[in-house]
């Protein structure tokens, strides 16, 4: 997967402080185009914060992030980068006053300036792809969590992002709905989408990730391909964490 090209996401020595809390302590990370990276770690380890720094939903205290050659340093660049990055949230965050279809149309119209015809075509294609059949005229509150999350993925994809960020996409879901979301993510990974996923789904990490990153206390402790990290973790902290999450 890796080649000699410039990494699509380049994170250099990021620090983030929330008041007294030092949430990220010098994180550096490079992600190649087409790579699927899964970030794991105990809660409070800074993995979601790191993810949110990539599209600057979270401001970082110091350090540098360059996405697709664009440094995240001014408002104009941040908006440019956000158009390149799709994000999927733990709580779906579908626009609750809009129908499923309108959720997919809004940003296409406003940001991408697509015609109604074009955006409808894209929206319907994507909704078909994520398996939302005929519920396109219902409101988010009327469909299940799994369906909402798949709509959220489709909404992000409608912007033709080059990178997709997933912030614990299945944590708020009932167990029987997790699979339908992971299946969509799996397909996306197979298509070669660059993905950064914060997740506790070790099965997905094992099957889809090219690289697993283990974080604790605001730092990257260890990174390795999944089979290596899961079977032969090098660091004591990684072992302890994995023994807790892999047991059940």
């Amino acid at each position: 997967m890796k080649d000699n090209k410039e990494p699509i996401i380049q994170i250099e020595n990021i620090h983030k402080r929330f008041g007294k809390v030092h949430a990220l302590r010098g994180v550096s990370l490079q992600i190649q185009k087409g790579e699927v990276v899964v970030i794991v770690g105990p809660s409070g380890s800074g993995k979601s914060t790191l993810l949110r720094c990539i599209n600057r939903l979270e401001e970082y205290t110091s350090g540098k992030i360059i996405v697709d050659g664009i440094p995240l340093d001014n408002a104009q660049n941040i908006n440019l980068v956000r158009q390149e990055i799709g994000m999927v949230f733990q709580s779906f965050n579908l626009f609750s006053h809009l129908t499923v279809l309108d959720n997919l149309l809004l940003a296409q119209k406003i940001v991408r300036k697509r015609t109604s015809e074009e955006s409808h075509k894209i929206a319907l294609e994507l909704l078909k792809k994520v398996g939302i059949p005929e519920k396109i005229h219902t409101y988010p509150a009327q469909i299940s969590g799994g369906q909402q999350q798949r709509v959220a993925i489709a909404r992000a994809l409608a912007m033709n992002p080059r990178i997709m960020l997933f912030d614990e996409p299945t944590s708020a879901l009932d167990p029987e709905m997790i699979k339908e979301v992971l299946d969509v993510m799996m397909d996306l990974a197979k298509e070669g989408m660059t993905m950064v996923v914060v997740s506790h789904e070790m099965g997905f990490a094992r099957a889809a990730a090219h690289r697993i990153i283990f974080m604790d206390e605001g730092q990257i402790i260890e990174e390795a391909p999944p089979e290596q990290l899961f079977t032969h973790p090098k660091q004591e902290r990684t072992k302890r964490f994995l023994s807790k999450v892999l047991d059940h």
Partner: peptide, 15 residues
């Protein structure tokens, strides 16, 4: 209105 609504809109590139 939950913060996530604004975040979702911003993450799609809206101002």
């Amino acid at each position: 209105i939950p913060k996530g609504q604004m975040e979702a809109a911003r993450s799609l590139g809206m101002s």
